[in-house]
Amino acid sequence: MKKISKITINEKWCKSCEICVQFCPKKVYDMGRFYPVIARPEDCIACKLCEKLCPDFAITVTSPDKAESNKK
């Protein structure tokens, strides 16, 4: 089974600028009514471009390898 990276969105800090939705190379996000929705998490390749481009410090992406090591 393909490992899925963990994406968290801090909705308290998000300002709905849609930068993550538009610039994700794999189109993982869809825009919800107020906040982005992680619509296709299985497509995420953990490039972390959304994390780098989020101006509001709202997105955190943990790559699958790290997510597993944290579990242990």
Partner: peptide, 18 residues
């Protein structure tokens, strides 16, 4: 102090992250 005062779509937060 967060969230910051910069508008939605402003790039200042991206530079701060860099």
């Amino acid at each position: 102090k967060m969230p910051h005062i910069w508008c939605d779509g402003c790039g200042h937060g991206i530079i701060l992250k860099s």
